[in-house]
Design a binder for these strands. Structure first.
Lengths: 126, 126
DNA sequence: CTTTCCACCCACCATTTGGTGGGTATGATG
DNA sequence: CATCATACCCACCAAATGGTGGGTGGAAAG
């Protein structure tokens, strides 16, 4: 039942395979601030459609970065949270961010950079 | 004249955009051991076809990680080398590799990992 | 002069990816 | 009971990506 994209054999490419994908890093970023429901994630990332959200979540699940907790039978109170493996991504993500900025600076392209809020809506309150 | 994929605004995704691509990381890896000619690169990475090699090299060039040195007019003695920006990728690549291994271990998937030599041929001699 | 090697380019194809717009079953709310 | 929100699934589409198989023009080697 796995969507599991057979990850490449080289560790480096395996890592890239796991975190690259149009929204994966963003989702992980949001989940770093605690578990969220499907709809919350959707609200945090308005430009992301439901289908794609779920696609990405499934992939993250398959790769062991995220886990689902559903209430009882199925559905209606689903939470997604990072696994330890997901959490272990944090420093890597930080370094990628830093390098991305460095890259933009070196290429005098900093004005094309967007702040996080351009994509991730804060959504005040608990 | 740029093939330049318009990199995403978020620094994190920008970084991913720059290094993800079927062979980019491998090529950078090879270039870390010094400048190489087009054909040398091809020999180091047998499973990579010429067209795709050049494609990837162009992308790396556009993104400022690599530069070309051609002799005189054009062609026939072309070298590709990493720019400082390209070199600055080294620690990031190392961390990605490490995390890829970690990921495989956590998922008891280490047997699917390939050693570098499965893809990059050493090619003894200078 | 012919052959080989080198650094390419081009037309074309297959797969993958993200994305749109519907639909469904269920529980909660008025 | 009618309506709404949640957490999905499905058929379908469009763009991007990787890849194949053929060139080309020029330097170098036999």
């Amino acid at each position: 039942m796995t969507i599991t994209k057979h990850l490449p054999g080289l560790p480096l490419e395996r890592a890239l395979g796991v975190i690259s994908g149009r929204w994966k890093a963003v989702i992980v970023h949001v989940l770093l601030s605690g578990p969220k429901r499907t709809s919350e994630l959707g609200k945090h990332i308005p430009s992301l459609t439901q289908k794609v959200l779920i696609q990405q979540l499934r992939a993250l699940e398959d790769h062991g970065l995220v886990f689902r907790t559903a209430g009882a039978d199925d559905a209606h109170r689903v939470d997604y949270a990072l696994t330890p493996l997901g959490l272990s991504l944090e420093p890597l993500i930080a370094q990628l961010r830093a390098w991305g900025e460095h890259h933009a600076e070196e290429l005098d392209d900093t004005d094309r950079l967007l702040p996080c809020e351009a994509v991730v809506r804060p959504l005040i309150s608990s």
